[in-house]
């Protein structure tokens, strides 16, 4: 039985540049199409309550991702705090939809945008297991596996045991 919560406090990182703010629920986000835009910014509050900002490289892939899957914005903002079934389930259902609808390019872009130091402990293994059946069609899956392994070790977890079956 699951009786313990899993806590992790990520270290916020400092943005290099800003161009737009994406806050709140997915439906609230907006895209600045100005030519001066050089970066996309996600504002979020991490689970220790500190506000921080993430910068995303502007790319057609990322814009397409959040255009077709706006839940990604909320996911990226809250990924460090998703540590129980209630908070994980809506995003698991969305990720599964990408796969079952054959949106593997979008799923790959999603994996590309994920930063392991922003993920909760559960998501470090959960994202990999959820998407492993299509890993050969998701070029960023292998990169995520390698970085998740390192991140789990950095957080003092037994990465080999946790990633059993995936390595």
């Amino acid at each position: 039985m699951i009786s313990q919560s899993v806590d992790f406090q990520p270290t916020p990182y400092i943005p290099a540049c800003y161009s737009q703010t994406v806050e709140g629920k997915p439906s609230d986000y907006f895209i600045n199409n100005s030519k001066s835009v050089s970066c996309a910014e996600l504002s979020f509050s991490n689970h220790i309550g500190a506000n921080s900002t993430k910068v995303r490289e502007p790319s057609k892939g990322f814009n397409e991702l959040i255009g077709k899957a706006p839940w990604v914005v909320e996911f990226l903002q809250s990924a460090s705090k998703l540590n129980d079934v209630k908070s994980l389930l809506p995003f698991y259902m969305e990720i599964n939809k990408l796969i079952s609808h054959g949106e593997l390019n979008l799923c790959n872009e999603f994996l590309k945008q994920v930063r392991v130091n922003d993920l909760s402990d559960v998501l470090l293994v959960g994202l990999l297991r959820l998407t492993s059946s299509h890993k050969n069609e998701l070029p960023y899956w292998t990169r995520l596996l390698a970085s998740a392994k390192t991140e789990l070790s950095n957080r003092k977890h037994d990465s080999n045991a946790i990633l059993k079956g995936l390595l």
Binding site: I2, L89, D121, V122, V125, G126
Partner: peptide, 8 residues
């Protein structure tokens, strides 16, 4: 971690 993942 895997327990919570499997529960989800």
């Amino acid at each position: 971690l895997n327990k919570i993942h499997l529960a989800t």
